[in-house]
């Protein structure tokens, strides 16, 4: 197990209105640690020095809850494609490296503390229409409507989104189109969700804009940085549906 010494330049910010600045720390790590465990080591040291540890969001640490929200050397979730920060291991860094760690930056994601940002805007986009309007108990048998395997698979591809916000953090426009499109595609591709597609698409896009996210200009940074590798073809699909519902539906 090879030990490594790293210099961390880590963002410290008390609250949303604080300007914030980088703080430099040297951390002893080893190659088997996850990136977050390396931050645990830093925090342990800070606590031993009776200082406040660096706040960062994390929970499942297995790449599925979507809680981690940091930018490592300019890349959301760090240098490894298709990987969340919690699944990024230190063997991808070199002894002596300088690492810059920052929060996700976007107007719609205000910083709460250090690396913790407020992603409540995502919840509100879902609340605007990211659901199928069925009450509990009203369902017919699961096999009543056959669904083409490929369609179900495309829907699942979109549904794999973990709602972490890396797409927004990566986007030079601070746009959440990939997140919105993934959810709209997941539901709209299935016959169960297609019924209210027009209303859903309109409502979700309007909420997206209202939250202060930028507009998509097709840079595709979102797709490249998405830890679940959600495709931008979902955005095209959302665009298509949005256009269609704007022109043809009553909503």
């Amino acid at each position: 197990m090879s030990a490594m010494k790293l210099t961390l330049h880590i963002w410290r910010q008390r609250h949303a209105n604080d300007t914030g600045t980088f703080e430099t720390h040297v951390v002893d790590a080893n190659e088997h640690m996850s990136f977050l465990e390396m931050l645990d080591v830093l925090n342990q040291t800070l606590i031993e020095q009776k200082k406040e540890p660096v706040a960062f969001e994390h929970d499942c640490r297995e790449g599925i809850c979507g809680a981690c929200s940091m930018v490592i050397n300019g890349r959301p979730h760090g240098p490894l494609g298709g990987t969340t920060a919690c699944q990024l291991h230190m063997r991808h860094f070199q002894n002596g490296d300088h690492i810059w760690v920052e929060p996700f930056r976007a107007k719609a994601f205000p910083v709460i503390r250090d690396l913790v940002v407020d992603r409540g805007s995502f919840d509100r986009i879902i609340q605007a229409g990211g659901f199928v309007s069925v009450n509990t108990g009203a369902a017919v048998d699961g096999n009543t409507i056959p669904i083409e395997k490929d369609l179900a698979s495309q829907s699942m591809d979109a549904a794999a989104c973990i709602g972490c916000g890396a797409c927004v953090a990566a986007c030079p426009n601070g746009s959440a189109m990939l997140f919105t499109a993934a959810k709209a595609s997941h539901l709209g591709l299935l016959p169960q969700g297609e019924v209210e597609n027009a209303r859903r698409v309109q409502a979700m896009v309007h909420q997206h804009d209202k939250e202060g996210f930028g507009r998509c200009s097709n840079t595709y940074a979102c797709e490249a940085e998405c830890p679940k590798e959600i495709s931008v073809s979902n955005i095209a699909r959302l665009n298509r549906w949005y256009l269609k519902s704007s022109l043809t539906s009553n909503v």
């Binding site: 199928v132 699961g142 698979s153 539901l187 169960q192």
Partner: peptide, 8 residues
């Protein structure tokens, strides 16, 4: 119920 909600 889950199928109706759009679980893929």
């Amino acid at each position: 119920q889950c199928v109706a909600q759009g679980v893929p």
